[in-house]
Amino acid sequence: MATPLVVSEVSKSFTMHLRSGVKLPVVDNVNFSVAAGECVVLGGPSGVGKSSILKMLYGNYSVNEGQILITHGDRTVDIASADPRMVLALRRDVIGYVSQFLRTVPRVAAVDVVAEPLIAQRVSQEAALARARELLAQLNLPERLWSLPPATFSGGEQQRVNIARGFITSHPVLLLDEPTASLDAANRAVVIDLIRDKKEEGAALLGIFHDAEVRAAVADRTIDVSEFRAVGEAA
């Protein structure tokens, strides 16, 4: 079976045109891969480029150099050079992403926010909503909140909606950006279980976890992102 995610010689910097074109190096020569059924943790201090790596893998950030190879069916696609439609197709079917913060859409109920990725994969609305309710219940989100838009939820409640949305599909690659940051111990344990289930299903997981307990429970290995520190022009 092909390795689901291979990152090869990736470099990234930001050019700040509003600050007279100053170049902010982020990471340089990033190389790693994630196998099916493996959970790899990106480690290192804040500001070292962990989230930037996840955003490049998801197509939110452009990539200056290198390749990000994703197995898509029987093909391999380089997301660094893929056109927008391909990136959207990969997001629908291959790469899931649990961001740190939920981007809420006005008036859309929590349960619909969670079900949406399954519906996008043409699962029936009924089945998708049923699965969404299961996940929200598993994550202990009070049932009275399910039909409300998450904009007014607390940080922890929003994060659980976000986690449910990220875990509802069976994407072969799942990116996790501090999914447990604002959760209590009981819900952290639920997330640890969800991650273990994903590993057993054979998903390749790549995450950032500041919580040592969660990291110890799920990580197969840790990549120290400071090894990829860019030695470009200083700001």
Partner: peptide
Amino acid sequence: GLTDRVLDD
């Protein structure tokens, strides 16, 4: 480009 790419980067 992709909307969130243009807006995020």
